[in-house]
């Protein structure tokens, strides 16, 4: 997660460069962006002279910009999908953990089970926030759905574990107290005479 945020910041700086019109090779390092700003200011100093070459240059720049926007969108989408699929990596680990804790209910297994239940639910509720910066992408909905689906799979694994531990009231025996104790309306007694 932390890694993603870092990338995000560097991309933002890169976006400022784009608005300034300077065509710069994409860079993620901060030193490069510093250079980019300085070069940008030098470009603006040149700009007021005005010429056809300049418009050509601008056109070229525009073309290059369109190209890079496309590129960046693809990149963004790639990143988005990466984010959407990221919880899948932990399926195996969660499964392994849950398998290892056994079916006993005790003070050690309970926190694991509780986290395994709470985390996917929390993640599902935070989906919109997570995919906020991909809102401009067309596939964002698909990404969100994928993300939710994987979280549900995780939750499913945990619930299966809960059911095998007998924590889920899904069997008739869990509802025995709502089963009425049947009585007889009639009363009968008798004797040998």
């Amino acid at each position: 997660m932390g890694l993603n945020l870092k990338e995000n910041n560097s991309k933002k700086r890169w976006a400022i460069d784009l608005n300034g019109g300077g065509a710069l090779p994409s860079s993620s390092s901060s030193t490069n962006s510093q250079n980019a700003i300085s070069s940008n200011s030098s470009n603006s100093n040149i700009a007021p002279t005005g010429s056809n070459k300049l418009t050509q240059q601008q056109q070229q720049q525009q073309q290059m910009g369109e190209h890079s926007t496309q590129q960046s969108m693809t990149l963004k989408a790639k990143k988005g999908w990466e984010l959407a699929k990221s919880p899948a990596k932990s399926i195996f680990m969660t499964g392994f953990f849950l398998w290892m804790v056994g079916n006993g209910i005790n003070i050690f297994t309970m926190p694991i089970i509780i986290y395994a239940v709470i985390n996917p639910i929390k993640a599902i509720f935070q989906t919109n926030k997570m995919f906020l910066r991909f809102d401009d992408l067309n596939e964002v909905l698909m990404m969100k759905l994928t993300y939710i689906a994987i979280q549900l799979v995780l939750l499913g694994i945990t619930l299966y574990k809960c059911s095998s531990m007998g924590l889920l009231p899904i069997t008739p025996s869990d509802w025995i107290y709502s089963l009425p104790i049947k009585t007889t309306k009639e009363f009968s007694s008798g004797s040998i005479i």
């Binding site: 007998g166 069997t171 008739p172 025996s173 869990d174 025995i176 089963l179 009425p180 104790i181 049947k182 009585t183 007889t184 009639e186 009363f187 009968s188 008798g190």
Partner: peptide, 24 residues
């Protein structure tokens, strides 16, 4: 006094008891 109207089986299903007080 009857407390449980059914038996809980190993597969967690219920087997309802037939507790007819008029049975002799």
């Amino acid at each position: 006094v009857v407390q449980a109207p059914a038996l809980i089986l190993g597969n967690r299903n219920l087997l309802p008891k037939y507790i007819n007080r008029n049975l002799i």
